[in-house]
Computed example of a mutant assay.
Amino acid sequence: MELHWEDVAGHETQKLQLRTMLREHRLPHALLLSGPAGVGKKKLGHVLAAALLCEADDAPCGHCASCRAMASGSHPDYLEVLPERTGKNTAVIRIDAIRSMQVEASRYPILAKQRVVLIDDADCMNEAAENSLLKTLEEPEGAVTFLLITGARSSLLDTIVSRCMPLSFGTVPEDAMVEVLAGRGLATAEARELASLADGSIGRALALHEHEGLSRRDDALSFLVKLRQMDMPAVWQRSQAMGELDRETLSEWFLYLNMMLRDMLVLYEDGGSKLIYHKDIREQLLALLPSFPEPVIFSLLALVRETQRRLQTNVNLRLLMEGFHIRMRDVVNIRK
C-alpha cells in the first residue's frame, strides 16, 4: 500500500510542519508523536518514515525503490519495535527488543541513505529498555531517525522526552472521520453514528465497525439498567465472565461505560443536548437519570476511571472485576 501525506485524516498543522522540516533538511534525529489512541499517529509515522527513506525531493514519491519497498512492508532500512504480550499480561517492550534494534540500526543502510526506527507504544518499555534506548538517543550510531509513538507521554522518562522533538496530536474532527469511514464503503448515516461514538479516534470507529463494538456498548447500557437490582450471585457470575475477557475488550467496555456516565451528566444540564456521544440512545439514558443522582454518577465515574487505570497493570482480572462490581453496586444502593 502506497503511503501519502493525504492519507492521514486531519492533523494538517503537524503534516505541514513535518513536510517543511523535511524540505529544509532540519528534521531532528528523534521525534515523539503523542496523543490519543487511534487518531493516526502511527499512520503519520509510516508516511514520515517513507518520506525519510524516499529518493525524491517531494517525498514520499510512491514510485522509487524505497517507496515500493515501504509499500510492500519489506524495506531493509526500516525497523519497527512493538510491545509483546504473554498471556493476559500487559504488553511490554523489553530490553532484548531494544538491543536487537540497536544492532540493526547501527549497520550501514542497504537501500536508502539512512535507517528509520519506529517504536510503537513507546510507553510500554520497561525500565531497562528505556535506559538502553536513552543511551542510543544520546549518542546514535550512524544515520538513523527514531520515531517514538505514544498515547501516554507522561509515562516515559523525562530524559527520553527531552531528547526528542515533541509532536502532539489531538482528536480527528467528526467530519473528517465520516469522510474516512465513507471512503471505506460505510453508509453516511452509519459513518456519522460511529464517528460520534469514537470520540475523535478513527481507529476506535473502525474497531466498532469491524468487531461489532456496539454490542459491548449495549452491554454497558444493560449493566447500568440492571445495576440497582444486581444481587451477589449475579455479581459473581458477571465478574467471572468479564474476568475471562482480554484487556483490550475490557478497556473498550469501560470506555463506553465512562462515555455513558459522562453523557448522563451532560443530559442533567440539557436533556436535548447534542454534545453527548451516544445520541442514538439518548432516551434510554434520560430514563436512567431519576435512578442516578448527579453525586452517584460522579462516584461511579471515579470507580470506572480507577478501574481503567488498574487495567493497565498486571492485576488479576477476575479479582479486579469482582471488586469493581461490588463497589459499583454499593454506590448506587447506599445512595438510594
Rank of each mutant, 00 (worst) to 15 (best):
G203V: 08
V266D: 09
Q240E: 15
L194C: 12
A182Q: 15
S162L: 08
K226T: 11
W253R: 03
M165T: 09
A220M: 14
L257N: 04
M230Y: 00
E190Y: 07
S168M: 09
G213F: 14
L197Y: 10
N258F: 15
Y256I: 06
A182D: 05
M264S: 09
V172N: 11
R184A: 06
S201H: 08
L227D: 05
D199C: 11
G185D: 02
L267E: 10
L245P: 00
A241T: 01
K279V: 06
W253A: 01
E190R: 13
A220L: 04
R163Y: 05
S215V: 14
C164E: 10
E179H: 08
I202G: 02
S251Y: 02
A234Q: 14
R204G: 11
T171W: 03
S168Y: 06
G243A: 05
L275F: 11
K274N: 12
V161A: 12
F254G: 04
G243Y: 01
Y268C: 08
Q237S: 15
G203D: 13
V180S: 13
R184H: 15
E179I: 08
R184Y: 07
N258W: 12
T188A: 11
Y277P: 02
M242H: 08
L208D: 03
M232G: 00
L250W: 02
R238L: 01
L206E: 13
Q229K: 14
L227H: 10
D158I: 02
A191H: 03
Q237I: 00
G271K: 12
K226H: 15
C164F: 10
R163P: 04
M230Q: 01
H209E: 13
V225N: 13
P233W: 00
E190N: 08
R247I: 03
M230V: 00
N258P: 02
P166K: 09
K274T: 09
L206T: 01
L275S: 12
L167S: 06
I160N: 06
D199P: 02
A198Y: 03
L257W: 09
R216I: 10
L245Q: 11
A207R: 14
E179S: 11
G183L: 03
R192S: 10
L261D: 11
L194G: 12
D199M: 09
L224K: 13
K279W: 07
Y256W: 14
W253H: 02
V235G: 00
E174V: 09
S215K: 08
V180K: 12
D158Q: 11
E190G: 04
A189L: 07
R204M: 15
A207E: 13
